[in-house]
């Protein structure tokens, strides 16, 4: 649906130049909820604006729903933009106008007849559950309601693609969750492909099926969400994952471990999806000469699947521990030794 191919973009001013994008390529399939995460200044705003050509690339090409953006005339570009909805962090609604007028605007711009506009706007407001606010002024709404108006406005033209520019960053956690659920419905029920940018890993966790991580204009990691959550390769990705799934051993546990003078190792085990069905830990417990001590466990729902995380202390002879590690690796679970230098004799 969206292909961004080897795109670079540099912003130049008198004092300095900023490489906003450095050779970035992504591919978004129809039906995806594709999330791009990064800290501010990573280039994600520029990247998402390439898709409806609010930004033009210096080099590289962009294909959206089969059309090459660089080949479009002004008029064709406007037509394409009408098929791409966009939702903003600051909502960007006309503050002095009613909810109805705001949602109707894209249709008014496209010159639809009044009757049709009325029907479509009512449908869109119903979808975002704001029918009762039809005649309210935007200034009277809460942040969450404003974003619902923003979403209704983006959907009223029946777009194939929805771009979300930090759509939940100005909202509290509860409102964020309800807006994310709404976006999920947009994706499921209307079949709209969603490309979103965020700096919150929880947003990715809750609704995305693919994720790309950006740092200083580069795309450093990309893949299915479950995989990236389970096996983050880059430092920055690990940092993001840690914001929602803690894999750290609490300080007081560490103290106990340091005092433990038995021969042991601490392992971090991750079970993704089906892997959790195998009784790996139960089998470990039955291994002769091995003592298994579960220090902690958490479970996270990621994209309709679960990611379970165990921190276990394996006590026993080196050979026994190594055999246990091998067994874990073969079971399909992901295993990491935790700070091996610090623990275990």
């Amino acid at each position: 649906m969206i292909t961004i191919d080897h795109v670079s973009k540099t912003f130049k001013s008198k004092e300095r130049q900023v490489d906003a994008l450095r050779d970035v390529s992504i591919h978004v399939e129809a039906g995806d909820i594709y999330g791009i995460i990064g800290f501010s200044g990573a280039g994600k705003s520029t990247l998402i604006r390439l898709v409806n050509r609010l930004e033009t690339p210096d080099t590289g090409s962009i294909l959206v729903d089969g059309s090459d953006l660089s080949a479009l005339s002004k008029k064709e570009l406007r037509t394409l933009r009408r098929r791409i909805g966009m939702v903003f962090q600051q909502f960007n609604l006309l503050s002095g106008k009613t909810v109805y007028h705001n949602v109707a605007l894209p249709l008014i711009l496209a010159g639809h007849p009044k009757e049709e506009i009325k029907k479509k706007v009512d449908d869109a407001l119903k979808f975002v559950e704001l029918e009762d606010k039809r005649e309210a002024y935007v200034s009277e709404l809460s942040g969450g309601q404003k974003q619902r108006v923003g979403i209704a406005r983006a959907l009223v033209t029946d777009p194939k693609i929805l771009l979300c520019d930090e759509a939940t960053s100005a909202l509290d956690p509860q409102t964020t969750a309800s807006i994310l659920q709404l976006l999920k419905r947009v994706n499921r029920e209307m079949g709209v492909t969603i490309l979103l940018i965020t700096h919150q890993m929880s947003v990715i966790q809750m609704i995305c099926n693919r994720v790309a991580v950006m740092e200083e204009g580069r795309l450093v990691e990309e893949g299915p969400v479950l995989e990236v959550f389970g096996r983050p390769r880059e430092k920055i990705t690990q940092r993001f994952v840690r914001t929602v799934i803690s894999d750290q051993i609490p300080e007081n546990f560490q103290r106990v471990l340091r005092k433990d003078n038995r021969h042991f190792r601490v392992e971090l085990l991750k079970f993704i999806g089906d892997a959790v069905e195998k009784p790996v830990i139960a089998s470990l417990c039955q291994t002769p000469g091995l003592e298994v001590n579960i220090l902690g466990a958490t479970m996270q729902e990621v994209q309709e699947s679960t990611l379970s995380l165990f921190i276990v202390q394996l006590v026993g002879e080196d050979t026994v521990i190594e055999a246990a590690e091998k067994f874990i690796d073969e079971s399909g679970a992901l295993r990491e030794r935790v700070q091996p230098a610090e623990y275990g004799a």
């Binding site: 409806n52 609010l54 570009l77 406007r78 037509t79 394409l80 933009r81 009408r82 791409i84 966009m86 903003f88 600051q90 960007n92 609604l93 006309l94 503050s95 002095g96 106008k97 605007l105 894209p106 008014i108 711009l109 496209a110 406005r153 771009l163």
Partner: peptide
């Protein structure tokens, strides 16, 4: 006028004239 609103207008596929008429003026 909030630049964000003008950006939203362009994202909606508004022509320059429409940006003036429906966004810049009322705001």
């Amino acid at each position: 006028a909030d630049p964000g609103i003008l950006e939203a207008a362009q994202a909606m596929g508004a022509s320059t004239w429409q940006v003036i008429r429906y966004f810049l003026l009322p705001e």
